[in-house]
């Protein structure tokens, strides 16, 4: 069989703009989603695009936002923390446990001055985070499983401390931060904004933040660069636990009560916020900026669906579909990048 030779005349034409756009897919897609949703709801409902409602939306995503800051660190390292909501709940309950409650609340609590209660609550969240860190780095349990166990442990602590009751009191200044407002602006939004900003600064401008990206981008290379990978992983688990703790304390104040299973929705919400925002589940790509956009997408979606007449059962499905779409984009964006890398 004699065949003519294969022959090719080839010139490369990878349009630079197209290439750039593709590289930015994970940043552009969430932003476009946010815009589209905002426009959609504004058109569909006159009560959506008002200043009051904007304040509502921000308030609704604040607790999720605080929790999501720590989770962003963890996911950037290509790990996961499934215990965030549970730790938030436990920390909130520990805070209430060390605060004087009304006589009608029948739990064996130990009233302490407000500052002491807050310190103890933060220490509690740190301690639980340290257990996560120990399991992940020293014993070597995958974070997925380790934090799943911690989710249970946190729930157990909640159950033991409140024994099915509801505690209503938290220290005054926490109550203000969680529920008060300066002028039109709720305090909790200010706190969330400050913590998000802090997270952004740490991730972008500090050495620790750089290491977080490096460990997530290529763990083996980080190790070969002499970075103490285990230390970084332990640190992000602690950061995550403390953020959850703060979110939990403010959340309890915001809701006006501390009880079991109060934060159950926050696990999925905070993970969604990070992933919808475009931070890579494979680590190393994304950041707090993405998380902020993700939070707003979720906030606008949840709030907007309340403003339009939709079967409330359908809402759950719609949220699920949006999350699925975000996951698809997330993985697809990753694949585009890996393919470019393989071409080397």
């Amino acid at each position: 069989m004699s065949s003519p030779p294969a022959d090719a005349t080839i010139r490369n034409r990878t349009g630079p703009t197209m290439a750039w756009l593709r590289g930015q897919l994970r940043n552009i897609a969430p932003f476009a989603t946010l815009l589209a949703l905002a426009i959609l709801f504004s058109v569909a409902s006159p009560s959506f695009a008002t200043f009051d409602n904007l304040a509502n939306i921000l308030q609704q995503v604040s607790v999720t936002g605080i929790i999501a800051v720590g989770l962003t660190f963890v996911i950037l390292c290509a790990e996961i923390d499934l215990s965030v909501a549970s730790l938030a709940n436990a920390t909130g309950i520990v805070l209430a446990f060390f605060t004087a409650q009304d006589a009608s609340v029948n739990i064996a609590n130990i009233p302490l001055p407000g500052v002491a209660a807050v310190v103890l609550a933060v220490l509690a969240s740190l301690a639980l985070g340290a257990v996560n860190a120990f399991g992940l780095t020293v014993i070597g349990i995958p974070s997925f499983i380790m934090t799943l166990a911690m989710l249970q442990i946190g729930a157990g602590i909640c159950a033991l401390l409140v024994r099915g009751q509801i505690a209503y009191n938290v220290p005054d200044f926490i109550a203000t931060l969680g529920n008060g407002a300066i002028g039109p602006l709720p305090w909790i939004v200010v706190v969330a904004a400050v913590i998000l900003l802090l997270g952004h600064v740490v991730l972008t401008y500090t050495r620790f933040g750089r290491y977080v990206y490096m460990v997530g981008g290529n763990r083996e290379a980080a190790e070969y660069s002499g970075i103490n990978v285990k230390l970084i992983l332990a640190a992000v688990m602690l950061v995550s636990a403390v953020c959850s703790g703060i979110g939990g304390m403010l959340g309890v104040a915001h809701f006006g009560s501390a009880q079991q299973n109060e934060f159950d929705n926050y696990l999925l919400d905070s993970i969604s916020a990070v992933v919808v925002g475009g931070t890579s589940l494979f680590g190393g790509q994304g950041g707090i900026g993405n998380t902020v956009v993700g939070l707003l997408v979720l906030g606008v979606l949840n709030n907007g669906l309340d403003h339009v007449r939709i079967d409330s059962f359908l809402k759950i499905l719609i949220r699920g579909l949006i999350l699925l779409l975000a996951l698809i984009i997330n993985v697809y964006a990753q694949r585009l990048r890996t393919r470019e890398a393989a071409a080397g």
């Binding site: 003519p4 294969a6 090719a8 034409r13 990878t14 197209m18 393989a342 071409a343």
Partner: peptide, 19 residues
């Protein structure tokens, strides 16, 4: 080589196999 193997789908020019 990446063009020939379909890794880079965007290029100018033509490629022929067995004509």
């Amino acid at each position: 080589m990446n063009i020939i193997a379909g890794v880079h789908p965007e290029y100018e020019g033509t490629m022929r196999i067995n004509g």
